Amino acid sequence: MLIGDVKHRGHGYGTEAMRLLCTVGFDMLEMHTIFLTVLACNPGAVASYHKVGFRDAGCLREASARDGKRVDILYMDLLRGDLVLDTKSGA
């Protein structure tokens, strides 16, 4: 998920888009688990995924690079019961 224009970041658009995407995954595609990876150096994305209900599932230490520095890749997962539907709620 990427909100390209900086002026549109921090308004919850990415969180809501991820919430809707996960709803489609569970309701229409009948998925049991949804997982994602995110770079640990992106705390905004990690916080957004936590608001949707994703939980930390693991970490590959220094498995990627960003701006010439080694960074961790975080794994996160979500079960249907973890999904936070209320936009005013969150972890």
Rank of each mutant, 00 (worst) to 15 (best):
T37H: 11
L2Q: 12
G90I: 01
S89D: 15
V6A: 15
G44V: 01
L39C: 01
V52K: 00
R19G: 05
A17N: 03
A40R: 05
R19H: 06
F26W: 03
H32F: 09
A65Y: 14
N42P: 04
K7L: 07
T23G: 05
S48F: 06
S89A: 14
V24C: 13
L36T: 07
R61Q: 12
D27C: 02
T37I: 11
T37Y: 08
H32E: 14
S89R: 14
L85N: 10
G44A: 11
F26L: 05
L78H: 07
T23F: 09
R66H: 11
C41Y: 09
L2D: 09
Y75T: 14
S64E: 10
K51I: 01
R66E: 08
R19T: 12
R66Y: 14
V52Y: 05
Y49S: 03
C22M: 09
T23R: 14
D72K: 07
A40K: 01
S89F: 09
P43I: 05
Y75V: 08
G81V: 03
H11W: 11
D27Q: 15
G12K: 05
F35K: 10
M18W: 00
M18Q: 09
K51D: 00
E62N: 12
F35A: 12
F26R: 00
I34N: 00
L78P: 07
R19E: 08
D82A: 00
A57W: 06
T23L: 14
I34C: 02
M18Y: 00
I73D: 10
K88D: 10
A47S: 10
N42F: 00
G10H: 07
I34G: 05
L39T: 04
A65T: 15
G12C: 04
V71L: 03
G53K: 06
G58A: 07
G81H: 02
Y13A: 10
L39A: 07
I3A: 00
R61W: 05
M76P: 05
G14F: 02
L21G: 10
M18S: 13
F26K: 00
R80G: 02
Y75M: 11
V46L: 00
T37W: 08
E62Y: 11
T87Y: 08
I73V: 15
A91N: 13
H11F: 11
A47F: 13
A63E: 02
K51E: 06
G44Y: 02
L78Q: 01
A47G: 07
M76W: 06
K7V: 12
D27Y: 04
M1N: 13
Y49W: 03
D86W: 07
C22P: 02
G58C: 09
